[in-house]
């Protein structure tokens, strides 16, 4: 996948094997920065069985955040009230990042990149919040993170 700015290629990234998952998740521009979210598809073949896995790759201004910050995967980029937000996995725990700070959610899993029926559990993005499911300690949670004073209030 290549990214061009004013007809000049500025970034190129591998997205792995083909998959029903959309390997281009989005391109955002904010405050003079750009962020590209892509998915790398791994495929393991064992005789006649092929198993795929997806790893989110967030790139900010050409710098891959997984390598920079030690993430196993980073996904779900969006802005909340104009400020960047995303999820990441590090050391087996899934947390979030917003406005330069990590939000310690501590989930074992946050379903994402699901296709077809499992896509119903993907994080839902809104301009002022994100809604998602998380799993930890054998329990599922439904979580919303958003701006105070938005539609959170009944």
């Amino acid at each position: 996948m290549t990214l061009e700015k004013n007809d000049q290629e500025i970034f190129r990234i591998d997205t792995g094997k083909g998959s029903p998952i959309n390997t281009l998740q989005g391109l955002w521009v904010y405050d003079g920065h750009w962020v590209l979210e892509t998915v790398y598809i791994f495929e393991e073949v064992d005789n006649n069985m092929a198993t795929t896995s997806a790893v989110g790759q967030l790139v900010q201004d050409g710098e891959e955040l997984n390598g920079k910050n030690g993430y196993g995967t980073s996904f779900g980029f969006q802005t909340i009230d104009g400020i960047p937000f995303y999820f990441f996995e590090r050391a087996g725990k899934m947390d979030a990042w917003y406005d330069g700070q990590e939000i310690p959610l501590g989930f074992d899993n946050i379903p994402h990149y699901g296709c077809c029926s499992s896509g119903a559990l993907n994080p839902q993005k809104y301009q002022d919040r994100v809604a998602f499911f998380g799993h930890k300690n054998e329990t599922w949670y439904f979580v919303q993170i958003g701006m105070a004073g938005s539609t959170f209030n009944p």
Binding site: F133, W140, Y141
Partner: peptide, 14 residues
Amino acid sequence: QGLVLVSVELMKPL
């Protein structure tokens, strides 16, 4: 930063 987090524990698996 002004964010609110509301977490709901689901009493059944998903």
